[in-house]
Amino acid sequence: MTLLAWGFDGLLLLGLLGLAWKALNSTDLFSAIALFIAFGLLMALVWVRLEAPDIALAEAAIGAGLSGALLLAALARLRGMEGNVTSNTGVEEAPNNIDARLVQWLSAILLLPVLFGLVYGVLSLPGNAVGLSAEINANLAASGVSNPVTAVLLNFRAYDTLLEVFVLLLALIAIWSMGSIQFNRSIETIGKTSLETTSSVLDTLVYLLVPVLMMVAAYLLWVGAHAPGGAFQAGSVLAAACVLLLLAGWPLHRLLTAMRLRLLAVAGPVVFVSMAAYSLIAEGALLQFPPEHAGTLILLLETVAALSIAVTLAALFSGGQGQHE
């Protein structure tokens, strides 16, 4: 049993390193993307083996649902730009070999201290760290949920999550500030790919899959209270449903007009901040929930946050799409 587990872990590690190396080393951008998608799969398995199913779930939701689609859309846009702007795609740019070599060696030398720092950091870790799990388990009853990860993320250290929600909003603002503000100008503007914007196979897939995705998102949100799951995972699954609708050319922008989209995107951060302010005044500490209402408050917070995350991620995908100026 242990021998098999060792073999499994060893093979996983080798595969992961091999994929990472090939993905970085590949000159063809498309195979780099395919390798990166495969890398995400193996990474999820690694998280499972490290007994972190919460992170495996997040990796599955983000890696399988969004980053692949995001990278493919970016590649399509890059190809579109290559036609107009005949320089600076980064890959074939190597004016002469000596320069490239110099840059490689220079970056290798600059990275050496980082490597030493990391090795030193790993070596100087205490042999058996106690961690905080004992304290968390002791206080779990007061948190309102029975999943320790959710208890930490949304109660004990809720300000971390508060800041993370703002990071997403900031990313959206940054992307929007660089280009257009519309959620999705219809699919026809994106490329030569689709003269006819509908295909019955794709529509059937959307009909079947999107309701299931919405249900799974709701399930992940609910199950987060006592098992791996939660707002980020649910939000990413919901965002994947939006991405699917966008890719299939459904007029999502009619449902999510610019105003509604903005309201939804800021709803999570606003609810979070107002709850933080309220708890600061009423309880005397930032984001400290009264134990008897903690479970309800966390569910409310997570629901709004999941909606905001879903809309933000879908808008990030949409913002990266080509728009003809």
Binding site: I37, L41, A44, V48, P53, A56, L57, A60, A61, A64, G65, L66, G68, A69, L72, L205, L209, V212, L213, V216, L220, V223, A227, P228, G229, Q233, V237, A240, V243, L244, L247
Partner: peptide, 13 residues
């Protein structure tokens, strides 16, 4: 659940 999410989202890519 992780397997479920993977299976559902594979179609998106």
């Amino acid at each position: 659940d992780v397997a479920l999410v993977f299976a559902l989202l594979a179609a998106v890519t």
